[in-house]
Amino acid sequence: MLRADSINVQRGDSRVLEQVSLELVPGQVLGVLGPNGAGKSTLLAALCGELAVSAGSVKLDQRELSDWQGVERAQRLAVLPQSSTLNFAFKVEEVVGMGRLPHATGRERDQQIIGQALAAADAQHLLARSYLALSGGERQRVHLARVLAQLWPGGIGQTLLLDEPTSMLDPLHQHVTLQATRRFAEQGAAVMVILHDLNLAARYCDRLLLLERGVPRAMGKPEEVLQAELLQSVFGLEVLVHKHPERGHPLIIAR
């Protein structure tokens, strides 16, 4: 469980994040939405300790984030960045296996987990391939499998932060990825995911946080946050909000 209390983040003279409070609850997926430059990735960086907060506090399991030892923290908090710079010819299973570095579960168990995490990201067929030979979307799925493997099988006390995990994926794998994320949360993990696609957010998130220029504009259930006037004022885009004919969640259509 990860909890942020009125955090501010300062970059030079400008405040890039202001008074953000949130709680990542076991079993739930929190979606973070907002236009480019709204501070979504900054929020994620503050929540995992990459950026220092200038005010407020971030607590992981009731303990200040900075008080955690590296390995202990890595066993309960995993982070998927927007993109990776890996430039070496590791095999896919080795890349996913790096998620097991904070653990000492033994080779056999690790191998099992690597397989299961890859299957969750629908990438088990890539197991023996060289990472450098993969396409952008395949690489993204491999890294998702890596962070899933880091916390596998997920459970209460595990926190997963994902920065745009679907940005390079085809439509099918956008859904596959978020379904895997959901299932992971259902095991008990607390998940935060930054998304651009409002409809994916409506479908897979329990709660949504809408950021605008570093300030939270709305937080709540998808049907509370995804409202036409609010979206227009934040994104500057005129939209119609309908109901998904089969599932009932909000469906956003640009006018």
Binding site: E50, V71, L77, A78, M98, L101
Partner: peptide, 15 residues
């Protein structure tokens, strides 16, 4: 090995 993923990734893996 972890560093090849990136510095922040290595930190997130506990190094």
């Amino acid at each position: 090995n972890a560093l090849l993923l990136g510095e922040s990734e290595a930190r997130h893996l506990g190094f």
